[in-house]
Design a protein around this nucleic acid. Structure first.
Lengths: 392, 392
DNA sequence: GCAAGATAATTTACGCCCGAATTAAAGGGG
DNA sequence: CCCCTTTAATTCGGGCGTAAATTATCTTGC
């Protein structure tokens, strides 16, 4: 049993230092200490190791008005790279990033997880990426893989993924054996949430929610500074919040889940059923129809925004986060959801959490892959020392 | 900013050891280590200090089948006492407990928080309790005070309490100055949750929710082993989960909050409005009417159970706790709510969280006061050493 | 009776973080 | 010019927790 804090974080402090330097380079040790709420002594120790490892460099001392000059620290962005891969039910998306999480190379391939040799296909695909990185002499820390489903991140085992149809898959072990490189596996939303914690909205914020709305609806949480996954690793099922008294049956078997009203899949389905778009229409088509002012389409989206706002208000009241970020393919439809969404929020948020900032973020196809790379970057020195420069 | 764990827990480990001995005495160091998932070395260190302080005693070595005999440890229950006080908007309830959280003395007085000298009245009242404990030569660790509202537990300041009408009240500091005894202040639900974590449902469970339904509805969370209070200390507003599309206006100003349908106050109000009970009826009267089979009354309660079940299902889906405990004065009406509550839960819980155990607990008037005493017991050695035996 | 094995508890060395004291490196005033 | 102030960074000792080795104390088999 976990008794309070202490056993949770592994290398989080080191990771936080790297991440803060990735965001604004040139910070001095003292500034890092202040922002991370750690003692200068700790930062001295950590940065010494990072300097030794060549991940960080000192700049020219910067003389301020008075007192001893501070020494700005900078990441050495190409001193380490990470390969991040998102495995989805129709394609595999990947990025190669530098230590500062900037993407140097991206790829996307169709993928069929139902094939019996799906994992071998995936392995081959990743191996070729590793080899091409090796040819360019890019030191690689490892591979991060983000999958939909319930994952044990410690072992890198995929316990169950409805979307991929995989169960009890020791993915990290299999990949590690095949690739000879450290492999980390995590849930897709968790990966994005962790990356957001390090490089994005969570950088200055210890309590935030990340709502991801695409074909499904997921929610990642950072609470008291740490990602929260629930007792059995299954927390975050925001999409299955009951929101309608007697709504349609959801894929989970229950009725009236938020996901039946707001996910891109359900919106498309309902738009087709209502004849708003044709039977083979895409999300883009739905957007176009709404942009043209189709009333039925706009009503559908307004309604969705309202339900989302109401459900989110309840969750924000419950958890009292400092910030909420909404991402996902839904962002394409956002112009038509935003008004009713924010009205519903305003109508249902408690006064004491009204200050919660709620941002929507444009979607990018490689966001989850970047998150997967973030898993690797978050563990830069956890593996034995040689892995840092070992390349392949 | 809090970066992951590490900065959170103060003396939690020591507290956990005391609590586990309070629950089942006679555990050996090795057993404690296993249950707490700490190393035997740690337990050796901690128990040495507790033995030195006289809070714990060794029993007769207990020879098992093979190997070195284990030494059972026992709390010395009367080696320390705590005074726990619940301040509510109509009365003050208090208990004096031993180190093992058993109550040795209780009291309850009417109280009017709106009086300008309310804090002085409270101080006088507590002082007399401290004195009577001193007369009985009971060593007192300190006073814990549980109040409704948003509290900064570190400073013991009550930031805002709608129910008491107090704002920005440095309660702990004032009481400490007046009483000369360590004083700890926390939110009422937080106090009960923390006590539950130590002595109750949370003892073997690192992720649980505690739902308290009385005049209002509150929710306490223990996530990853630690109490969670939200970014601004305002998390847990389960009562203001939007649950009805266009429900009545709630005390928070919004519409359709759960609290307008399920709290004892709202149930009584609606029962009166519907003529189910008389205009001056009590909760007991409502219970009696329902027990006699009054259909309108039963319908009202069924409906409340259903709404509660649906709202709770959403929260459980979101947080994925291992256990949920429902407490509060509502327990009186539980026989009439239970069926619809559990049906609604079953209809809306995701398969992956169906195993979550959901218990309802009979209410006791001094539960929150006991929780307040728990705040003190959770800090037994945090204060300088002499406070342990100092008495008054 | 005595070695072998099992379990309990403790000791030791270490990692991580902190607070406090110390050292380093400027600028400014008499 | 020297000393004081200011800010940055480091060192040092200590607390908390761990893992591994060690010590303690029992049972069992020969």
């Amino acid at each position: 049993m976990r008794w309070g804090a202490g056993s949770v974080s592994g290398d989080m402090t080191r990771t936080a230092v790297l991440a803060i330097l990735a965001r604004h380079g040139g910070l001095s040790r003292a500034e890092i200490a202040e922002q991370l709420e750690l003692s200068p002594a700790t930062i001295t120790t950590i940065t010494r190791r990072l300097l030794d490892a060549g991940l960080v460099e000192e700049g020219e001392p910067r003389t301020s008005h008075t007192g001893r000059p501070s020494i700005p620290l900078e990441l050495v962005p190409d001193s380490a790279h990470a390969l991040g891969v998102q495995v989805a039910h129709e394609h595999v998306t990947g990025v190669l990033t530098q230590l500062d999480a900037t993407v140097v190379h991206g790829f996307r391939h169709p993928f069929d997880p139902s094939r019996p040799d799906a994992v071998d296909v995936l392995t081959t695909l990743i191996r070729s990426e590793i080899e091409s990185a090796a040819e360019r002499r890019l030191p690689l820390l490892g591979v991060g893989i983000a999958v939909p489903g319930v994952v044990e991140p410690e072992t890198g085992t995929l316990r169950m993924s409805v979307r991929l149809g995989w169960t009890g898959m020791p993915l990290a072990a299999r990949m590690r054996a095949a690739l000879g490189v450290p492999v980390f596996v995590d849930n897709d939303i968790s990966a994005v949430t962790a990356a957001e914690r390090l490089y994005g909205a969570g950088a200055d914020c210890a309590d935030f929610l990340l709502v991801a709305i695409g074909e499904g609806i997921g929610l990642g949480m950072v609470l008291d500074g740490a990602p929260y996954r629930g007792a059995a690793g299954a927390a975050g099922e925001f999409g299955h919040m009951p929101i309608l008294q007697d709504g349609p049956v959801c894929s989970c078997g229950n009725r009236g889940c938020l996901e039946t009203q707001v996910s891109t899949e359900s919106l498309l389905r309902r738009a087709r059923e209502l004849g708003i778009v044709g039977p083979a229409a895409s999300l883009e088509d739905l957007r176009a129809v709404a942009a043209e002012g189709d009333q039925a389409g706009l009503d559908l989206l307004h309604r969705a925004g309202e339900l989302l706002g109401r459900a989110l208000a309840g969750s924000v009241n419950l958890l009292g986060p400092e910030r909420v970020v909404v991402i996902g393919e839904i962002s394409m439809l956002w112009p038509f959801l935003a008004a009713s969404f924010h009205r519903a929020l305003a109508d249902h948020l408690l006064p004491c959490v009204r200050e919660t900032s709620i941002d929507t973020r444009p979607w990018a196809d490689d966001l989850i892959a970047i998150g997967a790379a973030g898993i690797v970057l978050a563990t830069p020195l956890a593996a034995p020392r040689q892995s840092i420069r070992s390349g392949v």
